[in-house]
Design a protein around this nucleic acid. Sequence first.
DNA 1: TATGATTATCTCAGATTCAAGATAATTTAA
DNA 2: TTAAATTATCTTGAATCTGAGATAATCATA
Lengths: 140, 140
Amino acid sequence: MERKCSNLPFLVLMQTSKAVHERIKEEMTKNKLSITEFSVLEVLYQKGKQTIQQIGNCILISSGSMTYVIDKLEQRGLLSRNACPDDRRVIHVILTDDGNELMEEIMPKYRELVDNMFDSLNSDEAEILVHLLKKVRNKV
Amino acid sequence: MERKCSNLPFLVLMQTSKAVHERIKEEMTKNKLSITEFSVLEVLYQKGKQTIQQIGNCILISSGSMTYVIDKLEQRGLLSRNACPDDRRVIHVILTDDGNELMEEIMPKYRELVDNMFDSLNSDEAEILVHLLKKVRNKV
DNA sequence: TATGATTATCTCAGATTCAAGATAATTTAA
DNA sequence: TTAAATTATCTTGAATCTGAGATAATCATA
């Protein structure tokens, strides 16, 4: 009765993504940021002004958590809330100069870290991996 | 200046694993279990009696969290703590009959769910996926 | 226009996590 | 034998997350 693992691709997928996640978490700890905080800053850095909800949709966390994390980052002066003149329910969020400066410093290191983790794959392999993962993702 | 995504394999890996994780979480909610709780029960179901630390090593959570989750499951009568006669620092944990019964019910559905999520891959593709993911995992 | 539905954000309580430290038992080695 | 190191578990406190519900604004439509 073989039962070491019922589904190897599943196991390895979860192990790998967890390892990658941990590695990034560790790196971000150096910048005194949680992954959630970094994700918010990254969205703002790459897309510019966003509403709270837009950010939440990008990084898939609840509205309660969004308020919390935006509060934290605002307290640290890395971003600012700005009322939207067209729709008073909406709050726009943008990076402050400090926030932008921090991201200018962090992003190259972050990109390098990510690239390093995947550079054991040549471009064909990377393409195949993406293809296979998308097949799985689309089925889930 | 293309910056939609600096590293596609990374992005798709994280999206896919997150989707899989969410799907399982959703399924386990039906059984009133968190993924952590399920993971503990799964280890016990598959391996039988384990120490708290052995379980923690399997599912990679801290000792503080282990105490918490074992407490919860013990309160619900799904597992029991048993002092180890040889080493009084150690506590063995085993499923109760109720816990075992629950797992007998859950596991087939769980295995089916996981298999379904991956059945868009044929066996060659599954093998390639595992190979490529392992390459990444080993580099991280 | 009035009203009911929807939307965006916030608040709050409860759950879960981790890290650090406490406790207690065991092992090691002088 | 005994002191020091190690190991296993638990306790505590801080941080973070979610979900439910509150608030307030806007939209849709009769």
